[in-house]
Design a protein around this nucleic acid. Sequence first.
DNA 1: CTGTTAGCGCCTTCAT
DNA 2: ATGAAGGCGCTAACAG
Lengths: 333, 333
Amino acid sequence: MVTSTQEESEKVDHRPTLHDVARAADVSIMTASRALNGQARVSAETRERVLSEAARLGYRPSFSARALRARESQLLGFRAPNLMLPVHVEIIQGARDYASQEGYRLLLEVDPDESASGDTFTTDGDLVMGEPPAFLRPSLARCVSLMGRPSAYDIDACGTNLAEATLDALHHLADKGYRRIGLLHHALISPAFSPSQRLIDSGCDQDPELIQVVSNDKSSVLEGLSRLMSLDPRPDAIAVVHVVGTPHVLRELHRHHFVIGRDIGFVGTEVSSSEWGDLIAPRMTAIQVPARQVGAEGAARLIARLRGDRSPARQITIPTMLIERESTPGPWR
Amino acid sequence: MVTSTQEESEKVDHRPTLHDVARAADVSIMTASRALNGQARVSAETRERVLSEAARLGYRPSFSARALRARESQLLGFRAPNLMLPVHVEIIQGARDYASQEGYRLLLEVDPDESASGDTFTTDGDLVMGEPPAFLRPSLARCVSLMGRPSAYDIDACGTNLAEATLDALHHLADKGYRRIGLLHHALISPAFSPSQRLIDSGCDQDPELIQVVSNDKSSVLEGLSRLMSLDPRPDAIAVVHVVGTPHVLRELHRHHFVIGRDIGFVGTEVSSSEWGDLIAPRMTAIQVPARQVGAEGAARLIARLRGDRSPARQITIPTMLIERESTPGPWR
DNA sequence: CTGTTAGCGCCTTCAT
DNA sequence: ATGAAGGCGCTAACAG
């Protein structure tokens, strides 16, 4: 039994609109609108009829028309530079969960950075990874920067303090007795890293070569690692403050038959909710980046703004956590 | 030096529209539109003026208005049931990459499954995980089902053949000499699994208890595992055809001090581009689900449809790959 | 080369 | 309880 749509020659080639529904239910467009939106007073009988016709026709309100009328799209843009790294993914999840709860949806924006500024469309607001690109300048009030370094602009931001996390990791290693600690980290880690007094007091090597700044490219990471490992003497521990880099480094170390924990101490970085560091052998001591919360808090901030919050820009910092597992037993076993 | 926007008391509280730009450049709205869209004939001088005013005002075209006018939003919905599993993530990436290349963007749709059908908005088309929900029925022509089982509806679909992958995994184990193989798999794996002749010929145990169907819940997975492990005799190998379940099972096995490879053979499932199975010790023999391609091919299909392709519905199957690593050395070492 | 007219689908406002 | 007008921002199709 096929419930066909073409009774009475209602051949509708386009998606059915309110107009179609109204005609089918033999009421005015307005009545149809009211019936569907539930709110206003419509006779129960009429409402029934409209609803059933709408269902039969498969009516779905036009997003664009509503947005145009309401002057807001309930859309939040999520802009990340090119790739979709694990961190982004987690952030998206956090943001999406929060946003959808508040009736907003997420639009994934490709960000060819240099794209013609006129080429972009309107969302109610944007979550942007790092610095907001130039064409968003005029609407900074509707932007929240995620995981960026403290911005030059007066803009809401939400991130973690990777600089502190780095020190935490190094302190942990120092406490375990490692004295020649290699550090591999991302350029994002704001101001040039400088070792703490505590590290110096611990008697750790201060060789500047022990600090390598790398990008998200696998090759860049491996190059940094190789510089580290060809130092003389070789580091007795490595901290990788770099979500993308961590697996690369581990794999490479494996490849060279280094046994983590025994031959070298190791602190990696993982996104908090994935915790794969828990699966590998030995289990990896790790900095956990609370990406999900960053996404959620960022979305919360943005939505608050959209709803009229005019308080001064806020910098939200969600702390990382250092999870000690078994890749950092200390140098003498 | 502040380049303020409020010259000549042009206080614009709302986002600037074409109207504002036109007025500022002292031309008609149409001219402004043409100048900005580049196409039509506008005097170079006028164009300059419009462009610069637009830039100064921070004009961005209204997405909704354009979409309304053009009768298409260039938006593809991605609908997944509640959670965002690793597979979804990869699929999204694949889809996004393809879509953005073609000028479409992805809208992440929460899918409260049972939500009022009228509550949803219009996208040009939808990528949906599994079966399209009822309210999408009328527009099946604009839907591509991802990773679903062969659908009752005549609809484009894109997925992998997990049933075959399962057999592959079991054959691999049998070839390695395992004879009592436990299988943990997801309900999605379409028709009830039945062992192949080849397995029977290999002399593998046919105990039906060796096949456990589980859901995406951690608890369900662990329960299935525990049923498997309390069998007598215990399985000498396990195949987990389940992206989400694999890490859970590994972790649990660890917890019980099973050494993968030595105490028990193991085939897991991973999403192809993450390859974390490569990182753990021993490196995990794995079924690789080509999630990214599924997303990309799905998007390609959908976009082709939107562009007028009227060919009969197609079922695209992208094969999984079985990567042999070290967790399946065979039972006798 | 530039301006005018009309209308995309919806909803707020004001009648009836 | 229902309907009629008008307009959100934009652009195709015609003028001029």
